[in-house]
Design a protein around this nucleic acid. Structure first.
Lengths: 245, 245
DNA sequence: CGTTTAAAGATTGTATGCAATCTATTATGT
DNA sequence: ACATAATAGATTGCATACAATCTTTAAACG
């Protein structure tokens, strides 16, 4: 009695791309990925403000979803929040860059050592395929930033092969930050990543030589860090007297 | 009245606890901490739903802030979101527990090795003080959960001594999850953490013996993992209001 | 002419309202 | 009585509105 209840509208739209909830609107995760990709591709350089309403217009969603996406970027240090001012694409300092590489040298040699034990032929095939894509991107002009994300993906792939979801997430964060750091501090002409280091890592894995793989990884990360211009001891302190002496 | 110009309200309220923005209302970060603490203290056991509106009432804020806090808990795996159902305190599976300990064994031995190099006498003093607090909590009845968080804090303190903020954050996540895992899988009577292992780690650091420290850490983490019983228990009903009363 | 003060504009932080969805309960049919 | 379908209640997901705050521009003043 009394069909006060709204007769079910659920069935009406099995795949309709319109309406408030289960439809074609981008998820906050998708927006997060879009912004992150834009940062990696150097389309949103460090310092750029991520204005919520503008992004909301762009993606045809409300500020709520954009805020959620930005919140995640801030959590992962890709963006930095300034309390009543907004969120900006991070500009990692040289010290922060060194911290990232320190953490990577702490984690990744051990990671690849275990991968050398666990990797199946299928995994090694994946690694070879990935390295081939890197080589392709390296020889094709106009794909430099693509190369940066690809080299990062190589390290994430290692974490995925380890089968440890926590390490995957940690490596994802580290790689995103590394990409940002390379964009900031890489010398334009410098070869920031020797072209044969990734293949040699795969060689060591295939040979089941965990020790060699770990050592190669350590030096590899050192090479990447040293190819950057992190020289400035840090912006903070300047001796006024010596400047005007 | 027509004081069109709002005479500067900035100076007027140096510490006023009332009003919508800069006042006594809890920040989403504070709410995050409160909920996290409640989880650690076993007041919100795994499986408990974190109902947004109820928490909002409890903390006298809107759902918006609560959602933000819950979002962070989900990001850190302390809570798990089920799409149109809600967020629940996580019940890590045995496999996930093993992943956490695997990651810890991968990271923390190397971490303590570097700490053995970098630690100052001041740092060692801090570690001794912390170990003393652990001993105190262990011998005082009714402080078991406090002990769990304290042992976790010991490992976080090591990360802080390393001076690497990225590692601090990673360890924080790992320790929160470990505490949850211990709550789920620890045999109530079992001594899940030998009472002298932390002091011996500090001994090795003080002796500048990084290798011994790393080895001790590795076996320490193995001990903790092996003291757990992998048999998932229950999920009961908890009254949110009474927990935060 | 430069400096301080007031108004306007832009953007964030927070609360609130509403539709979609899920769960539990009741009604209905066989 | 049991299975199935309709209904009611609860909770999330999303959008929007409004106030606080910061920045910029304009005005007043010395």
């Amino acid at each position: 009695m009394m069909p006060t209840g709204t007769d079910q509208p659920t069935q009406a739209t099995p795949r309709s791309p319109r309406g408030p909830r289960g439809n074609g609107a981008l998820s906050s995760e998708a927006i997060h990925q879009r912004i992150l990709a834009a940062v990696m591709e150097h389309k949103l350089p460090p310092g750029t403000q991520l204005v919520e309403e503008r992004l909301a217009r762009i993606f045809s969603v409300s500020r709520t979803k954009v805020r959620e996406a930005i919140g995640r970027l801030v959590h992962d240090r890709i963006a930095t929040n300034i309390p009543n001012r907004g969120a900006f694409v991070s500009s990692p300092t040289a010290d922060e860059a060194r911290e990232v590489f320190f953490a990577r040298r702490l984690i990744e040699p051990n990671l690849i050592r275990t991968v050398a034990r666990l990797a199946t032929p299928r995994h090694i095939q994946q690694l070879r395929a990935h390295v081939a894509r890197e080589a392709e991107a390296r020889t094709t002009p106009g794909r430099e930033h693509e190369l940066i994300t690809l080299t990062g993906d190589f390290h994430i792939l290692l974490a995925e092969i380890s089968g440890n979801s926590f390490l995957v997430r940690t490596l994802r964060e580290l790689e995103s930050l590394t990409a940002l750091i390379i964009l900031l501090y890489d010398a334009p002409d410098e070869q920031h990543c020797a072209h044969d280091e990734h293949p040699r890592l795969v060689d060591a894995i295939e040979a089941r030589d965990g020790e060699r793989a770990a050592l190669l990884m350590h030096t590899h990360l050192e090479h990447v860090e040293h190819s950057l211009k992190l020289a400035p001891p840090e912006a903070g302190e300047v001796d006024l007297e010596s400047v005007f002496a």
